[in-house]
Design a protein around this nucleic acid. Sequence first.
DNA 1: GTCCTGAAGC
DNA 2: GCTTCAGGAC
Length: 289
Amino acid sequence: MRFLKILISQFHKLYKVNGINDEIKNIFQRLIHEYYNKFGRDFPFRRQINPYYVLVSEVMLQQTQTNRVSLKFLEFIKRFPDFESLAMANNNDILETWQGLGYNRRALALKKIANIIIQEYNGELPNSIEILKTFPQIGHNTASSILTFAYNKPTFFIETNIRRVYIYYFFPGRTNIDDKEILEILKKTIDAKNPRKWYYALMDYGVMLKKNHPDLYKRSKHYKKQPKFKGSDREIRGHILKLLIKKKEFPIEEMIRIIGLSKIRVKKIIDQLEKEEFLKKVENLIKLV
DNA sequence: GTCCTGAAGC
DNA sequence: GCTTCAGGAC
């Protein structure tokens, strides 16, 4: 701890005078690693690593807290242990296991990805950002993190905890910081020899920083307040899907009655769910696909 | 660019 | 009421 404090104060002093250079890079890497060696977090998806587990956990971790993902991850890989079993599974079982994580379309996307990997990539997760980005629900950040965690390949990506670390150390006093600026410095400071460990360490450090500096993210250009969940279409949509997963099918009129809101509003949400391939309408029934 | 998308802990 | 490991559709 004492050693860590020395590194931190050295960093601030030297960065203020010289800006970014090799010495700063060295001190920064040492302090991040030093913290991780002492206080790094332990997760099931960090203990057992294979490309399938990494894909599942990274998709689960989009917009969802680590502590909520840990248990679900174990449940999920127990029920769907590999690409093949997920590709063979039906949506109903997948959504049932997914309950509690939210953003259910991620679950459907995972199944689609499993299908693509079995059919087009011989059952192996492609080792390429460009290919991964063609998969549903996989953008640049998720593609990069998957490659780094699955194959220990150096990539450059920002997520909320990483952003917090860079804002804190490299943009003191600044506001409206663009991720492009952070990415430039991130590229210059990466530990390319141990990318997997490096990114674990960065994220864990960012989580720690949040305790004493909860407002760091607000200095990002990309900070946005979320709209209210209570009373939103999202809440209704979640409710409809939850009922459907439990009972498989409902007469559409009964669903409208249970939800207790205007027919027009509920129908619109049901149409959207149909369009996203969660459910289908059969005569007067709605049922899971 | 803007809007949409869950659920839970605090 | 607040925040929380973004990505897709438009």
